[in-house]
């Protein structure tokens, strides 16, 4: 059935390939990994996604995400 809507999508998150349900938002991805409400920053395909937009940003097939935190460093 060529017209079937895909049920999943594949993203690269912090260098790791993840298969997610189609329609997953950044907020849902963070929540599923336990990062909801934590101080993290997200870049999607080279652009910052402000925290205020996490809930309304739906991931697309092939998206490349970087999710970062502050760690000790000099």
């Amino acid at each position: 059935m060529p017209d079937e809507i895909p049920q999943t999508l594949t993203c690269r998150v912090n260098g790791e390939r993840l298969t997610l349900s189609a329609g997953t938002t950044i907020a849902e991805l963070l929540a599923a990994r336990g990062w909801a409400g934590k101080r993290v920053a997200v870049e999607r395909n080279g652009e910052i996604v402000p925290r205020s937009l996490h809930a309304q940003t739906t991931l697309a097939e092939g998206d490349v995400l970087e999710i970062v935190v502050a760690v000790g460093g000099g």
């Binding site: 998150v13 912090n14 260098g15 790791e16 990994r33 336990g34 990062w35 934590k38 101080r39 993290v40 920053a41 970087e66 999710i67 970062v68 935190v69 502050a70 760690v71 000790g72 460093g73 000099g74």
Partner: peptide, 20 residues
């Protein structure tokens, strides 16, 4: 104080203590 910016470890327990 300086801090570094690094990828979160997706396998890590997010409840581990955080520098901030």
């Amino acid at each position: 104080v300086t801090v570094a910016i690094r990828r979160v470890n997706l396998g890590q327990n997010p409840d581990e203590p955080n520098l901030l």
